[in-house]
């Protein structure tokens, strides 16, 4: 598809309201893309995204790409370090609360962990995730609905390093599932405020992408091939870069990178 087409669709592909209020919204039903959010420790940015996307009724899971879960400690050289997949948000919460409630409340950690333990059990590591393993035993997780198959259509990372780690890992895995996945990085600074902004931006991106995917689904059969202009005929996969380009114009402070990779 050429550039002229891309511009022609700008108006039609623009989503409704970019920013959603921080809360539930009506589930419109219908087709939904499956999302996966990724940051370094699966604590702040990816969990903010996880919550927001779940509240927007998208199926979503989240991971961290670091070797360990690292949280700020009393000084910069003494971080609190935990193992992925083995430590629950609740146990981290209780440990930090016992260590120094004042400090960890003041720096927002307890607040964050309190939120996280209501979303899912504990931080998960991307590299240990077996893609395609059914996730049927996770009914209590937020965003569980629709995620049973254990695969995602869109992976959103929150930092260039995480995107690199995800792509590198996917290359190493050798793509046994033959399933295409769009991996998108959004650069979000690792603090509570930026994470919140980033979460909103993620929902905006998700809405825009889902809108396009839905349009593709609604076209049936031969009609899809013959209807209208080239842009209308373009598939979801083709329109992803265009959607990201438009999204980037709306969120110029969150530089994005995209690729199509394989699970």
């Amino acid at each position: 598809m050429d550039t002229a087409n891309g511009n022609a669709t700008t108006a039609s592909a623009a989503p409704a309201a970019p920013a959603q209020p921080n809360g539930h919204r009506e589930d419109p039903g219908g087709f939904k893309l499956k999302f996966c959010t990724v940051c370094a420790s699966n604590q702040n940015r990816s969990m903010e995204g996880h919550l927001r996307l779940a509240l927007a009724n998208y199926p979503v899971i989240s991971f961290g790409t670091g070797s360990l879960v690292r949280l700020p400690g009393p000084t910069i050289t003494q971080p609190n370090v935990y193992k992925f997949n083995e430590t629950s948000y609740d146990s981290i919460y209780r440990e930090l609360e016992a260590k120094d409630p004042r400090l960890y409340r003041a720096n927002g950690l307890l607040n964050m962990l309190g939120r996280n333990r209501n979303i899912k059990w504990g931080p998960e590591r991307w590299q240990d995730w077996q893609v395609g393993m059914p996730r049927v035993k996770k009914e209590t997780d937020k965003g569980f609905e629709g995620m049973e198959g254990g695969v995602a259509d869109i992976v959103i990372t929150c930092e260039e390093r995480c995107w690199d780690a995800v792509i590198d890992d996917l290359l190493n895995r050798g793509s046994p599932l033959n399933r295409a996945v769009h991996v998108i990085n959004i650069d979000i600074k690792d603090n509570h405020e930026e994470a919140s902004v980033g979460g909103k931006a993620m929902v905006d991106l998700a809405d825009s992408l889902n809108q396009v995917a839905k349009e593709e689904r609604e076209k049936v059969g031969a009609a899809a091939f013959d209807s209208g202009s080239g842009a209308a005929r373009a598939s979801f996969d083709e329109r992803v870069p265009e959607v990201i380009g438009e999204w980037q114009e709306r969120w110029p402070n969150l530089p994005a990178t995209w690729t199509l990779a394989w699970f």
């Binding site: 550039t3 891309g6 511009n7 690199d164 792509i167 590198d168 290359l171 190493n172 870069p241 265009e242 990201i244 380009g245 438009e246 980037q248 114009e249 994005a256 990178t257 995209w258 690729t259």
Partner: peptide
């Protein structure tokens, strides 16, 4: 255009990632 930027960045980064891998 915004889309071209995304496309170019994407191809460059993907190529680089493969080479680094």
């Amino acid at each position: 255009t915004p889309k071209n930027k995304v496309l170019m960045k994407s191809m460059e980064k993907t190529t680089r990632m493969l080479m680094i891998n």
